[in-house]
Simulated assay, not measured.
Amino acid sequence: MRKTIILNLDDPDDSVYHSILLLLSTRQTDMGIEIITNPKDEMIISSELKIRQAERRAYFKDSEIALTRKEYDILLYLLQNINQVLTFTQIYEYVWKEPDYGTGQEVVSHHVRSLRRKLYLDKSSGCYLRTVRGVGYSLEKQKSCIGYPGG
């Protein structure tokens, strides 16, 4: 008998969600389980760069890009605030969840440099990380650069 389980959680970062998803994915072949995630979960950043939020993974030309937890969190925060300048302090306090005691600019800049090396974003791709000297960063996009499949 085939059974269907539907998980509909408001917070995809919830630890319960990730625990259930991990359990099901490790037993997937043993139990004949098929995991289908919401297609809106996949963010298309450029024609070659995609992010799957439920998995916390980024892909370039269908190959996974190894991002650290902080790199991923910074990227997601910039995506959530597309075309807006975020200060070093805003990024630091959002990602590290603590006040910026004066080291935020250095720490955030280090992670953004690493993101740039890994993501291959430039103006020709339609999306790029813009530095606002002395202020922070902005993820800039051209029309229809970032979207969700089917929506």
Rank of each mutant, 00 (worst) to 15 (best):
K3N: 04
I6H: 12
D11P: 01
Y17I: 06
H18I: 10
I20N: 01
I20R: 01
L21G: 00
L22A: 12
L22K: 14
L23R: 09
L24H: 05
S25G: 06
T26E: 10
T26D: 09
R27S: 13
R27D: 10
T29K: 15
T29S: 15
D30N: 06
M31W: 12
G32Y: 08
I33Y: 05
I33K: 05
I35K: 02
I36E: 15
I36P: 02
P39Q: 08
K40E: 08
K40A: 13
K40H: 08
E42S: 07
E42I: 12
E42D: 03
E42L: 06
I44K: 04
I45M: 11
I45L: 15
E55N: 03
E55R: 13
K61G: 01
D62Q: 13
E64W: 09
L67F: 07
L67M: 08
R69N: 10
E71A: 02
I74W: 05
I74E: 03
L79Y: 00
Q80E: 12
Q80R: 15
I82T: 14
N83T: 08
N83I: 05
N83C: 03
Q84C: 08
Q84D: 05
Q84M: 09
V85F: 00
L86Y: 05
L86C: 11
T87V: 05
Y92Q: 03
Y92K: 08
Y94P: 00
V95S: 03
V95N: 03
E98F: 04
V107L: 11
V108K: 04
V108G: 04
S109Y: 10
H110W: 08
H110D: 06
H111A: 02
H111P: 07
V112P: 04
R113S: 14
R113N: 15
S114P: 07
S114L: 12
L115Q: 02
R117Y: 03
K118C: 05
Y120R: 14
S125I: 10
C127R: 12
Y128T: 01
L129F: 06
R130A: 13
T131H: 11
G134D: 02
V135I: 15
E140H: 07
E140W: 07
G150D: 12
